[in-house]
Simulated assay, not measured.
Amino acid sequence: MKITKVLTAYATQDGDGVNIRRIPGFDGKYLDPFLMIDELKSDDESDYIGGFPPHPHRGIETFTYILKGGFEHKDQMGNTEAIRAGDVQWMSTGSGVMHSEMPLADAEQGLHGFQIWLNMPSADKMREPQYQDTTEHPAPSFTNQQGISLKALAGTWQFESQQLASSLQNLAANGAIADVALPAGKELYLPALKQQKVMIYIHTGSLESAQGETFDSGKLLIVEPSSDICIRAEAAAGVLILAADPLNQPIAHMGPFVMTTEAEIRQAVSDYQNGYFGSLS
């Protein structure tokens, strides 16, 4: 496995004072077609209790995965769903979504989860929004004889003899995401994925590369296209593997809006101010 770049998540806040770790990619330089990886991990309620009150989006897809605790999602399309540990939620915002994500009142053991943004192809940015989650069709997983488990959060994954197909199959740019848990001292091998952008985000423990480099949690490893994946856990580790095909298109970004031109951003702001995005009841 050849690693071409290593990025480090930094501490910031979003929503109503929610403390997160973030890796941004709005410049399109390293993450394309991914735009942002946010990790929320805390046992202190004050870090996340404010949640994410109603706000708009246009031109992106949001992907939410919960490891511990949970959020209640609401949107103007009428979707209301509790997203709990193990659940995944995908929203292709297209021309416009208004939504909120607030911590569940009964989630008292802290919160650990992710929100990942993917860019949408320019031609799709004004299509109707779509919503899907895995609450009725849980993400499939397989654990091998070494105790390494792979959970297919989105897309279809081949892990040894098992093909794992998530119910979420329509992410932009052929996107696919998996969560892998490795016991201490164990090594994961996957043949090269078909997508040209492959990244590994370490959310728990630490990894060691074949070259002997150690990478701690909060690191994002960007893998050379067409390279296989070979990682070893020093201590018990958990990682997200993110794969997609770069869009190689201009990015115009302002807050919750990501379009292709500045004129489209101005139109998004105007549409929001004029009530185009609707409201939450």
Rank of each mutant, 00 (worst) to 15 (best):
V18F: 02
F71V: 10
A237L: 03
E45A: 13
E234Q: 15
Y201E: 02
P129F: 04
A237V: 01
E234S: 09
K219S: 15
Q13I: 10
G59Q: 06
A123C: 05
L190D: 07
P256W: 11
W157K: 05
L171S: 04
G28L: 10
Q89C: 02
R58T: 11
G51P: 14
G70K: 12
D133A: 06
E264V: 06
A178D: 08
K125T: 10
P54E: 13
K186V: 06
M259Y: 04
L240D: 09
L182S: 02
G275W: 10
I177R: 01
F26M: 11
G50V: 02
I222A: 07
Y189K: 12
V18G: 05
M254R: 04
S95I: 11
A172E: 14
S226N: 15
K5Y: 03
E187I: 06
Q158S: 13
A154G: 09
I37Q: 04
A235V: 14
E72D: 05
R84I: 12
G155S: 11
D133K: 03
F114L: 03
Q13D: 05
I23Q: 06
D271V: 04
E128T: 13
T64P: 01
K197S: 12
L31H: 07
H73F: 02
K219A: 14
I116K: 02
I83M: 06
R84T: 15
G155P: 00
R232Q: 14
H55M: 03
S206G: 10
E81D: 08
L193R: 13
P246N: 12
S281A: 10
A237H: 01
K219M: 12
Q163E: 15
Q211H: 12
R232A: 13
A243D: 09
A263Q: 15
A11N: 09
S42V: 08
M126S: 05
Q132A: 14
H99F: 10
K74W: 02
Y189L: 09
K68C: 01
L182M: 09
